[in-house]
Simulated scan of single mutants.
Amino acid sequence: MKIRHVHNGIFTPTEDIQAVLVPPATGFYWIDADLEDLIVLQPLFNLHDLAVEDCLSEEEQRPKIEIHDGHYFIVINSIRFDDEEIFLRALNIFLGRHFIITVTKQKINELRSLKPVLWEQEVDKPDRFLYHLVDLVVDNYFFVGDRIEVRIDNLEEDILMHTKKTHLNEIIGLRSEILWLKKVLGPQREVIATLNKKDLKLIDDQLQKYFSDIYENAVKISETFDTYRDLMSNLREAYQSSLSNRANEIMRVFTALTTIFMPLTFVTGVYGMNFDFIPGLHMHNGSYVLLGFMMFLGLGMFYIFRKKDWL
């Protein structure tokens, strides 16, 4: 657990947890805690039992905001994309009048990126801290969206150039993750809408207007992932079409080869019959003449097929 006194964006570490209970003359306290720290923090700050239970739960938490006496409990999801899989990490936030507590199970990149933003903006209140944190979380969705778009473009190009059976698994896997992510974006957008519109005593009225900008970004992200979902459907159709074209191409080659060998097979069948009277049967060097004729016939048909672009 790390305790910091924040004043005008300047961090001052402290280890006196009892001092945090009293509102400071200036600034506020930020407590960056682990799950185990909630045992100490809950009785000190009178954190609601259900909120603490949600933090400790092994199940994936839905983004939400709960209003309790003296504090708000907010859950938002940070996103991470490792080229193969999309990860969502819950960020649990307890917002008080003079403090803010962040509780995470894993490391959240946005918390590390937040410090220079707080210093630059000279943040002096916990509600402004919350605003900049949510803003960073939402902005990261755009970054992940761009990487997903690049992956879709590369996958599409690879399918059109070299179709493989593994491409179908990639399409299904990525589409499933996008659909799963879409389900999360809805509740998260509702949380931001609540921060934007609802009368919340612990958030300054002037600051609430800034949440409208974050809400607009959240709507854009949701619409962007709708587009990605449609692109994945188009990509699957392109995969099926590419497979069909490839199968047709193979069948065309096989058909052309069969057509070329049909007259050759007929000739060899005729001269393979056990009759004494077959034209050219007793001709001197007749076998070479026949082989030459068959070669001329096969190459001639091959040339005609190539000229007509059948091969």
Rank of each mutant, 00 (worst) to 15 (best):
R229Q: 09
M232S: 01
M232Y: 01
S233Q: 10
N234H: 14
L235E: 02
R236Q: 09
R236T: 03
E237P: 03
E237D: 14
E237I: 04
E237H: 10
E237C: 07
A238L: 15
A238R: 13
A238H: 08
A238F: 07
A238C: 10
Y239L: 01
Y239K: 00
Y239A: 01
Q240I: 15
S242Q: 14
S242Y: 06
S242K: 15
L243N: 10
S244C: 07
S244R: 12
R246L: 02
R246V: 00
A247R: 15
E249F: 13
E249P: 02
I250Q: 11
M251G: 07
R252F: 06
V253S: 08
V253H: 14
V253W: 15
V253C: 04
F254V: 09
T255A: 08
T255S: 15
A256W: 08
A256S: 14
T258K: 08
I260H: 09
I260M: 06
F261M: 05
F261G: 02
M262F: 13
P263V: 01
P263N: 07
L264F: 07
T265N: 14
T265V: 03
F266G: 05
F266Y: 06
T268C: 12
T268F: 07
T268M: 12
V270T: 03
V270F: 15
V270E: 04
Y271R: 03
G272I: 00
G272D: 05
G272T: 02
M273A: 11
N274D: 13
D276W: 03
I278W: 12
P279M: 06
P279R: 09
G280Y: 07
G280C: 02
G280I: 02
L281V: 05
H282V: 02
H282W: 03
M283Q: 10
M283C: 06
H284W: 11
N285E: 11
N285K: 13
N285T: 11
N285D: 09
S287L: 13
S287N: 14
Y288M: 09
Y288R: 10
L290K: 05
L291D: 03
F293G: 06
F293P: 00
F293T: 05
F293L: 11
M294K: 07
M294Y: 10
M294N: 08
M294H: 07
M294E: 02
M294A: 05
M294R: 09
M295T: 15
M295S: 13
F296V: 02
F296L: 11
F296I: 04
F296P: 00
L297M: 14
G298S: 15
L299V: 10
G300Q: 04
G300M: 10
M301A: 04
M301R: 05
M301V: 01
Y303Q: 01
F305S: 00
F305E: 01
F305M: 02
R306A: 01
